[in-house]
């Protein structure tokens, strides 16, 4: 496959990706113990949005609208957000192994989550205590990274090292809390949360995550040209006219807030933010104007299906979706990698 072909087919890939995601949302929201055809799901959604359609019977309507749709949408938002944040951090650090958790956000979120789950901090607030605690933990960890880096950020290597250090610190704090205060039940709940689960999705969480993710991704998309240049180093980016010193911290803050928001809602779901950007690059090439939306669509579709599998394969038991993202994703990525190295 020659590269101009990749560039030429980018609009096609994006259109197809958008269609696939829409279809996936409808099918996934209908999948489960009570199967509802995609058209039924579409009708219910239409009716709830004020359209002239007839809703499903109350029980089925409630299953779709109150239970499944928030979860499916949260999966899509999480997949899109993590994939784009991963792609951005891979460009700013020029490190193909960078992922959204690079800046200590997930470790911080975990510490925040165990403080709520094990120590019971903020349990008076109700169901929102966990995501709020996790988000606070994520921002605290990211603030530590920024403090370590100082005003100038320094080299990409320094950014990665600071992230790793803070991740280690908060990982240790998480373990400490679990070991000192956790009983068997709570430890199990913590383990489940750490592996990532979208089971707690409701419309409030979806709403908050939708606003945060949409705003974040729009901001990152505005920096697409600069990310192309940054992949060639800060110096080159500055030499072609980008105010790197000003905008690089913005990029880090935006990815950290989006990631923190999503991790707070669904736990530290792995794999998506690391490998989906690479898969998207194989499909549309490395230009971020196209790469970022492609990664968003691919990550969203992928996580919608991974989460659907997580709640149906062993039903009525749930699998942590973080386990499934790797179980499904690794073979899929291996195929992609093989095909790519096979073609010149």
């Amino acid at each position: 496959m020659t590269r101009p072909v990749l560039a030429a087919r980018a609009p096609l890939v994006l259109t197809a990706g958008g269609a696939a995601l829409t279809l996936s949302l409808l099918v996934a929201a209908g999948t489960g113990s009570a199967d509802i055809p995609p058209l039924g799901v579409a009708r219910t959604v239409g009716a709830h949005l004020g359209g002239p359609w007839e809703t499903l019977p109350p029980l089925r309507d409630s299953i779709v609208w109150d239970l499944r749709l928030p979860r499916v949408l949260l999966a899509a938002l999480t997949g899109a957000g993590l994939a784009v944040c991963g792609a951005v951090l891979q460009a700013t650090t020029r490190n193909p192994l960078a992922d959204p958790y690079l800046l200590g956000v997930s470790s911080g979120a975990s510490t925040g989550a165990v403080c709520v789950l094990v120590l019971g901090i903020g349990s008076g607030v109700g169901s929102l205590a966990l995501p709020v605690g996790a988000f606070a933990g994520a921002l605290t960890a990211f603030a530590c990274v920024l403090l370590l880096l100082g005003r100038t950020l320094g080299s990409a290597t320094r950014v990665v090292l600071a992230g790793v250090m803070v991740s280690q610190l908060f990982g240790a704090l998480t373990s400490l809390v679990v070991v000192l205060a956790g009983d068997a039940d709570r430890t199990r709940a913590v383990t489940f949360w750490l592996l990532g689960s979208l089971a707690s999705a409701d419309w409030t969480l979806v709403g908050v995550c939708a606003v945060g993710t949409a705003a974040g991704l729009a901001l990152l998309q505005l920096h697409a040209g600069q990310l192309d240049a940054l992949a060639f180093g800060r110096e080159t980016a500055a030499a072609v006219g980008f105010e790197v010193r000003r905008s690089e911290p913005v990029l880090y803050v935006v990815t950290a807030v989006v990631t923190g928001c999503l991790v707070a809602a669904g736990g530290a779901i792995g794999f998506v933010g690391l490998l989906v950007p690479h898969a998207a690059r194989a499909l549309v090439g490395g230009r971020h104007t196209v790469l970022l939306p492609a990664a968003a669509l691919l990550g969203a579709t992928f996580l919608v299906w991974a989460d659907t599998a997580a709640r149906t394969v062993l039903a009525p038991q749930e699998m942590p979706v973080g386990v499934l993202t790797a179980l499904i994703g690794v073979p899929a990525f291996a195929v992609l990698l093989r095909r790519r190295t096979g073609a010149p």
Partner: peptide, 23 residues
Amino acid sequence: GRRAVARRLAFVAQDVATDVDMT
């Protein structure tokens, strides 16, 4: 401002190590 400078001045670094997939 960098943009104003970049309209007057181009800079070529010695080694640009990246594997970014661009043509």
